[in-house]
Nucleic acid binder design. Sequence first.
RNA 1: GUGGGUGUAGCUCAGUUGGUUAGAGCACCAGGUUGUGGCCCUGGUGGUCGGGGGUUCGAGCCCCCUCACUCACCCCA
Length: 420
Amino acid sequence: MSSQQYKTLKGMQDILPPDIFLWQKVEQTARQIFSTYGFQEIRTPVMESTSVFSRSIGESTDIVEKEMYTFTDKGDRSVSLRPEGTASVVRSYVENHLDKLPAPQKFYYAGPMFRYERPQSGRFRQFYQIGVEAFADSSPRMDAEVIAMLERLLSGIGLEGVSFQINSIGCGQCRPGYRDALLSFFSEKKEDLCDDCKRRYDKNPLRILDCKASTCRQQRQGAPRITDHLCEGCRTHFEKLQTLLSLLQISYSLNPEMVRGLDYYTRTTFEVTSQSLGAQNAVAAGGRYDRLVKEFGGPETPAIGFALGMERVIELLKLTALRSAPSPSVFFAVLGDAAGSACLVLAEQLRKQGRWVEVGDAASSLKSQMRRADRMAVRHVFIMGDDELRSGMLKWKNLAGAAQGEVKLSDMELFLAGQS
RNA sequence: GUGGGUGUAGCUCAGUUGGUUAGAGCACCAGGUUGUGGCCCUGGUGGUCGGGGGUUCGAGCCCCCUCACUCACCCCA
């Protein structure tokens, strides 16, 4: 405790067994499901030129203004650890001319992100996201596919009690008009808003819509809705998406007050939340960003993606899923040095077949070795001593039940094959 | 960056109005007669009571400072 000199940095943590098995399960499921939708993995560096993030996420967002791990490298360049995944993927898309691949181009990534924030429940300075990005398809069908894929992932790993919310925040055509409508609506109520919202009024008025303060909740009664201000294109896109989601039998709710923190979003936005998580209740979030590739110097390319917060998903899984750590299939309890050596050889043979095999410590008692095997939840224990070595007959015991018996050394593999 | 809460064994926590070598449960290790786990019994390992200073004859308990963790706000996955 206090005698410990070294510890992880604030907001960073080790991921250890048995938790790690949940992480692996989520990652494996994601890879499997994503592949059925034609998404391929992309790995980008965790560090980029600072401008990659500041230009895409938005110069005046909190992420860029105060939450990035930014420093100057030895070549006097400003570099930053990635605070999210999309900017890097878009940079890579443009840099590697991925638009020349058959359209649409679909990618996923998994890895750590970094934000210098005060940690709290479900929020860390190093956190992991699994994300996907689909380029060069502006159709609401792609929106529906991406959302369906997310839904299948979450149900595939056994998550329950999460809800999908969708919204459209319009495009460069219609959002300015909505923003003006919002500003004029709140202009006379500004003094009654909380201090944070007075600031939001100038900086990001859409944020007033999801303020938690009760006074602001009252003040925004009757505020104009983005969905009533969408241009023709955005409106039909949004309506079509809803039709498709219903067709796919994905349950969702409309949330016209859902806003986005990142500047690059257009049209469709969506979010998956859970009531079991505390204040940071978003499990996954995403949306369409039809102008970002162009802003990065690439061809005009629509795109949509989402990111899922691993720690939050794991937290939810821990609430419901039973934790089953893998366990050895075979344990050799050995008595005497000669038996120990013999079992070392046997263990190698069985491991070649992919079995997890443990060999006990010949220096400790049989009782102690049995206890150890039990605590590891081993399926089969074999006892090897001088007698067995001489006769070539091994004693076996099934720890789950209490069955025991003998088996010829030469029949062991057959025996195990029959048992499992 | 702002506010609240908590810091006693690996984990979860007791610790009476400040008073002798600081406890429990769980976990871990080992025994309970020759080579058999789980249940039970016994024993053992393990703590400078987050750190520093102060008050006192005496501080895990009181005061100050500090650090860490945690929850919430801001913001966000």
